[in-house]
Design a protein around this nucleic acid. Structure first.
Lengths: 213, 213, 213, 213
DNA sequence: AATGAATGAGACTTCATTCAT
DNA sequence: CATGAATGAAGTCTCATTCAT
């Protein structure tokens, strides 16, 4: 996985003209390899010795940049959550919507989230799939989405006989399963449309694709 | 500690008038406490010493009944999966359905699964929530459900513009989130109806609850 | 030091007809060797690996009997202090004294304490000489002795122009130095008489030994 | 962080108008903070990283001025011992004494030593209280004092039924305990008088303070 | 004169697992 | 059937110390 035999270029290259100090490069490299190992093996099966071996530094170096193995893991978790929250807030804060846009907006939310989750698979694994943190991450996401749904319910866009909370949770549950499916951007778009359809339309009469949207 | 001198009666619940041998009782007790600890702390954070302490036996006794800690965990996992499969097959194998029953059948599936998942919380935790096994469990469940949906699609009951596989996965994703919500049977019924509604009906026009079902 | 190559007899022999279980013997052996190593090298320079090597058991065995290296050390410290306190209380609780007995009582106190400190040199090293605990041990002893001196001051046996506290501390200070001098019981008796003389009599006119006592 | 940008003036106390070079200032600062940390925590619990943090320099700088942590400690120890020896020799080399001056001379010795030990508490802690070096320090002091006492015994000023060695040790033992008592110069003077009284006079008849001195 | 960065060596501790009884 | 006692193997973390700049 990852580029274990990455060329020195990717290992330490001062990307984008920003020149990082040697320490910052080491830190970044450690973070990257830590993410890869944690993602691959989980917290408990990952040994600090593996991370440093992959990074090509000695074990004490790890502790120059992370307080402990646990903290390193939490760092990654926190970074994932903060990125996720940023994204979620971004596309939830959009203005008023019209009834006819509901489907599109739902589909777009799915798609943006799926794209995000596919962006950095290691971080996603750690923050979104690995326990025990994943539970809280999803609960937080469901909460945010639920709040937005509640707003839309008040606006009369969504039916009110199902609690916004439940809707949010269902949204996240579907997202969770979809995010595990490998595929490219096109595939993710299709999945997003499918999910939006399931949520927004009748599962039965939908036999005629032309009635979609 | 615990009740080391607990009466065999309470410790081993002589089910159904069948009197178990001392060894069988010990085995059952170990299994029960192992499930409780694994569920509470996860595989890695559970120590064999904790399990035996809770059970009130010595460490070697554990190894009289389980090949290893890992095997004990797998036993529980396997038991959960087999129970789940049994249930799933049961209610999926039912005969032909009519269009007007679709909602009810979906709701009932949710409900039965939720009830099942609430029955033995420790086992559910181990088999359905804890990684890495939970992924496979859910994938298997999604597969089974997907197959059934495929059948229904052929019967013209479900729309065909979404793959049965995806529908199965969404179903499982929603189930996953719902199963984390605490509550009694009544609560689970409500959640089931909500999920069925989300899947089967239009999310928008549903502002009039009377059009439900 | 100690008997590193001690005969099996002394290593595990059920002394005095009391038969200790295997575990108790191991515990005792570990304690003994721990005391020896701690006494020889001090807390920080003593490695658990040394102790278990000397004892002839594996490293985890150490942790069967002691919570940690620190706890093992504290155990020894505590044992020393409790023994010391027992002794001190014993000979301080004696009844009324007459003026002419003062010298003898002081000398006897010195002697008994010196004998005690010579009894188990390792424990003494740990509890009485090694920092940081030794400070508290001595302060406690000085306190006890000071209390007794205060009583005697009230009885008119000791002069009152020096605080009992200070006298107690001086007593302990002298004891401390004396306890470092190697020698047999006879030597300790002489030292005790010397100290009692210094404390009780005039340092100057004493050029005529016959005026002693 | 301490005051990293502290003005050289306060950081290095340009003593006596002598202007020290930057390196000398750094050296002095390191020494001072090293003494403080060693005194506070003892040799083993003091980390080089603590010392340099307190001083506000980097770790390699420490090794510009000290060969090793151990050497730094020994430097301080040596400085203390040499100061102590200087003082001791000073007041021991005084000329002939008369019988009536014995008390005063003993009291003065105590007082001067106590004052000295109170002067630089960190150094005293390191050289006089912390093991294992403190033992040798005290032994050396006892030796010096014992030699002087031996001289006085020959002069007929001190009784001869107690060895000068023992007297010296008792003197040091008392000094040790006294030096642990906090207090100002006045307090130290009182303690000195008390100790001199204990050593020089009868502990019993002393109930009449007027016979003192 | 000083430091950012890195490390060799080793300590303590944990835990699943196994004898011998 | 059950256990007291013991251990192999490993893992995390610490710290004095040193390059290269």
């Amino acid at each position: 996985m990852q580029n274990k035999t990455s060329s020195p270029a990717t290992e330490s290259a001062p990307a984008k003209g920003v020149s990082l100090s040697k320490g910052e490069r080491t830190h970044a490299n450690l973070r990257r390899h830590a993410a890869a190992e944690f993602a691959r093996l989980g917290y408990h099966n990952t040994k600090v010795s593996d991370i440093v071996k992959a990074t090509g530094v000695s074990q004490p170096t790890f502790y120059c940049y992370f307080e402990s193995k646990e903290m390193a893991y939490e760092d990654l978790m926190t970074e994932f959550r903060s990125r996720l929250e940023t994204l979620t807030l971004t596309f939830l804060i959009e203005g008023e919507a019209h009834a006819e846009e509901v489907f599109d907006r739902v589909a777009l939310s799915f798609q943006q989230l799926l794209d995000f989750l596919a962006e950095d698979p290691d971080l996603t694994q750690i923050g979104f799939f690995q326990p025990p943190g994943c539970t809280a991450t999803k609960a937080g996401l469901a909460e945010l989405i639920g709040q937005n749904i509640a707003k839309e319910q008040k606006n009369g866009l969504y039916r009110k006989d199902i609690s916004a909370t439940q809707m949010g949770q269902c949204f996240v549950g579907m997202l969770d399963q979809m995010a595990r499916i490998p595929g490219d951007a096109q595939k993710r778009k299709e999945l997003s449309l499918g999910c939006a359809t399931l949520l927004c339309e009748d599962i039965r009469s939908g036999c005629q694709p032309e009635n979609k949207r």
